[in-house]
């Protein structure tokens, strides 16, 4: 029989997780419960993180934001400052599942479930977000892209968990966007996802760009060459074509029930271009 714990502090949570090798943190449960039901995971203990006060809610941090790891995706929509600064991240998190699912699901759970198709992850990587990891050995801040190790596996050590997602201060003339390809309009896992974050100068020239992809490799990818193809350009069609070439070159997808290699590769390029245009217009609107 499973043990159910709801610790009130980070330390207790970490101790409970460290004590039982098969123990699992529980945030929204929208992955964990499905996996438990299908028998894919059989934890001896569940450690519910939602009763830890510091893990819920959004606060200002270093000019940016610290989002408690147990904050459900729909709660992000209620934070006007966050929505204004990082609309792409908020949208990505609010593409997950349905309203019912998003009222529970968290970005930290999305990240730590380590699915290559997780929607919020490419957006967070593009935004250069970090995770605050807490564990028996104390705290550390880790770039988002370094958390997933392989499908279903993270680089977290026993007893470690994500306590916060930290988004940097947004550049005054920056913008971000995330798009995904799904067969339906809702309730689908991404066939491909693309997150883009840009900074423009007053002339509209791109001074910084990060392009990240989901579902085209075992983990979400930051495609540095794609970002580099945009930097220094006015985001003309030729620059976007070069960016798209870099995206295609970075894709290493599989054929599976959700899409073919050809389709995924082609869509990654198309979505990255479309997301770039949205990010551009957001950056432009901000500058």
């Amino acid at each position: 029989m499973i043990a159910f714990h709801s610790p009130q502090t980070l330390e207790d949570a970490s101790a409970l997780l460290a004590a039982e090798p098969s123990a699992r943190p529980l945030s929204g449960g929208t992955d964990l419960l499905v996996q438990m039901r299908s028998g894919r995971v059989e934890p001896a203990a569940i450690v519910d993180l939602k009763q830890i006060p510091s893990m819920r809610g959004i606060r200002a941090h270093d000019g940016g934001f610290a989002i408690g790891a147990a904050t459900p995706c729909t709660a992000l929509l209620d934070d006007a400052a966050l929505c204004a600064a990082w609309p792409g991240v908020v949208e990505a998190a609010n593409l997950i599942g349905s309203v019912q699912v998003r009222n529970r699901a968290t970005m930290a759970g999305n990240l730590c479930n380590a699915s290559p198709a997780a929607d919020s992850v490419p957006a967070l990587i593009a935004a250069d977000a970090r995770a605050l990891v807490v564990g028996p050995a104390g705290e550390r801040e880790v770039p988002i892209a370094d958390i997933p190790a392989a499908p279903g596996k993270t680089n977290l050590a026993q007893g470690e968990f994500v306590a916060e997602i930290r988004l940097p201060a947004k550049s005054a003339s920056g913008g971000d966007a995330y798009l995904r390809s799904i067969p339906r309009t809702e309730m689908d896992i991404a066939v491909v996802g693309a997150g883009v974050s840009l900074v423009l100068d007053s002339s509209g020239t791109c001074t910084a760009a990060r392009v990240a992809l989901g579902a085209v490799a075992p983990t979400a990818l930051l495609v540095e060459e794609a970002g580099a193809a945009l930097v220094g350009t006015g985001l003309d069609d030729a620059a976007l074509d070069r960016m798209a070439d870099a995206v295609r070159a970075a894709c290493n997808p599989i054929n599976d029930k959700r899409g073919t290699v050809e389709y995924r590769t082609a869509m990654a390029a198309i979505l990255a271009k479309r997301a770039t245009r949205i990010a551009q217009s957001r950056a432009g609107a901000n500058s």
């Binding site: 339906r184 309009t185 809702e186 309730m187 689908d188 896992i189 029930k257 959700r258």
Partner: peptide, 22 residues
Amino acid sequence: YNSKGCLDNPGFLDYRMPVASD
């Protein structure tokens, strides 16, 4: 079906019936 002869999409998430927004 996958190559082992097992159904690969035995759930509503991947057996994609129309949802209201479609």
